[in-house]
């Protein structure tokens, strides 16, 4: 039953991608837009394959992904600490609320000039921007998750004779998991945005630079089809993470436990 559903979903996705591709091709062939700004699909794919074969795009994608993972990890740790602390103490809750109110509306990219002054233009600066864009939505979601747990769950746990640690392990964490996963999804998407925009401003931060730098280089050399290649890679990775990683994770946890459909 579940297998069929999976197949269906992939077939559907594939179907829609093909339809969108056809629409794209028709527009490109009609030459309503300049071919240099709206290239045909075969040109796009050819340039993507070329960039894959000479290794450029792969190295730069891996570089960006590494930065994102680092940033996400730091962000996750900080979020867990912040939300945990504010669950324990009212005073800290006020602090966390205030800092979220201050920092959450600030787009990472608007902090760039400051970040450059504070920590220069290296990898650290990009990771700082990623952490900034991940931490606030993730903390908000974790807090919402904790707060949404009915008190009665805890009381049931106590009735079973569980100690505080066991209550956290068996009740609080699983019960807030749907919120946690949503937070992680938002954090992941935000991290992508942050890393691409930061790289487009900083240039090559490491030795080869990341995907944002790749796209920027394509822009300045007016290689529009190459630019689309970079975008396609971002889309593919996004779909892969969404469909494979998060889906699996949800199936293993909250769907199996009957918390979500």
């Amino acid at each position: 039953m579940t297998n069929k559903f999976m197949d269906n979903k992939f077939i559907l996705r594939f179907f829609w991608i093909v339809i969108l591709g056809i629409i794209w091709q028709v527009i490109a062939l009609s030459e309503v837009f300049n071919l240099t700004s709206f290239p045909r699909i075969e040109t796009l794919l050819a340039s993507l394959i070329k960039d894959i074969l000479n290794g450029d795009i792969i190295i730069q994608t891996l570089y960006s992904l590494r930065l994102i993972l680092k940033g996400l990890m730091f962000g996750l740790i900080i979020s867990i600490i912040l939300s945990g602390v504010s669950m324990i103490s009212k005073v800290f809750e006020g602090f966390v609320d205030t800092i979220i109110a201050i920092a959450h509306p600030l787009p990472g990219i608007s902090l760039l000039p400051l970040v450059i002054l504070w920590m220069g233009i290296g990898e650290r600066a990009i990771i700082f921007i990623i952490v900034h864009s991940v931490v606030w939505p993730l903390t908000l979601n974790l807090l919402a998750g904790f707060r949404a747990i009915p008190n009665i769950y805890k009381q049931i746990g106590k009735n079973y004779g569980l100690n505080s640690l066991k209550i956290i392990q068996y009740i609080l964490v699983p019960a807030s998991l749907p919120y946690f996963i949503t937070g992680l999804k938002i954090g992941w998407a935000r991290a992508w945005r942050a890393v691409i925009s930061a790289e487009m401003v900083f240039g090559a931060a490491g030795n080869a630079g990341g995907l944002g730098w790749f796209i920027f280089k394509k822009r300045v050399f007016m290689d529009t089809s190459g630019l689309f290649g970079g975008l396609i890679v971002i889309i593919l990775i996004g779909i892969m993470i969404e469909d494979l990683f998060f889906e699996k994770f949800e199936k293993m946890t909250i769907k199996k436990w009957g918390m979500s459909i």
Binding site: I116, I121, V201, F202, G203, A204, F216
Partner: peptide, 15 residues
């Protein structure tokens, strides 16, 4: 090529 940092002239000067 991989040691370049893209900066507008005034930013580059300050850096």
């Amino acid at each position: 090529d991989n040691q370049l940092v893209t900066m507008a002239h005034p930013d580059g000067m300050n850096a």
